[in-house]
Amino acid sequence: MRRLNKNHKRASRTSKGPRHGLCLLATFVATMVFSLGLSVAKADELMEVQALVDEARLTFARFVGHPEMTWLRENVKEAKGVFIAPNLVEAGYVITGSLGRGVLLVQDERTGQWSDPAFYSAVGAGVGLQIGAKRSEIVALVMTPKGVESMLSSTVVFGTGVDVAAGTIGGGLSGAMTPGLTADIIVFARSKGGFLSLSLAGTVLAVRDRWHAVYYGKSVEPTDILLARDATNWYSDRLRATLARTGARESQPASQAD
């Protein structure tokens, strides 16, 4: 009986041959499609994150390069962190909403070196005179450890428990610095029409864990990237160098500053 069963099984296997072949072929094709799909999706996502890193850097360069942004330039070196949102879109009619993405980098107090970026989504809502849509760029200097800590949770309501102020613009020709900005976070904003006064208060920042995984090749938290420095990617070098160069340039004697 056992022998019969065995024979039956063998016969069954033989008769299933084409089906199994098809099964294997289907698995193989599915594997290829699946892996190709995954790699394309991942490649697209990585490119998206790299684009954010590049745009953040260009936004920062456009802010600090502007002749009127004296205060910002002169205080980058003192900042504990920098939050940059290169493309914040605000839209609505009386009731407005804003949506964007941003990066946060933290400066090591001891070495002066900037961390790699942590990635955030920014979502805001408010009431205003807005009609239609407006695109803004944001650079926020985080001036205190308290300000940095406020941005390390997985979801942060910008400005909760910390002082946030709109940055001062001006002093391009005289080089004079505007005193009196003592908030934890100083926000500079610009749209196509020019610089704006914007505090970002109430904007919700949510950590993009998925982007961290794609960009750093492993699952990491903002504290791993910003404080422990456990995650790095060479692609951030240019952003970090731009931040470092700005601080260094402003600390040089005036005769060498240009």
């Binding site: 990585l46 490119m47 790299q50 684009a51 260009l58 456009r62 390069g65 002749p67």
Partner: peptide, 29 residues
């Protein structure tokens, strides 16, 4: 007004920098 002309020059440089970045991201992909 030198800072303003310097800034105008830098803007053209930054545009080319952005173009290079865009290209290399696409090539990497």
């Amino acid at each position: 007004r030198y800072p303003y002309l310097k800034w105008e020059i830098e803007k053209t440089q930054l545009r080319r920098v952005g173009e290079l970045d865009r290209l290399v991201r696409e090539l990497n992909k």
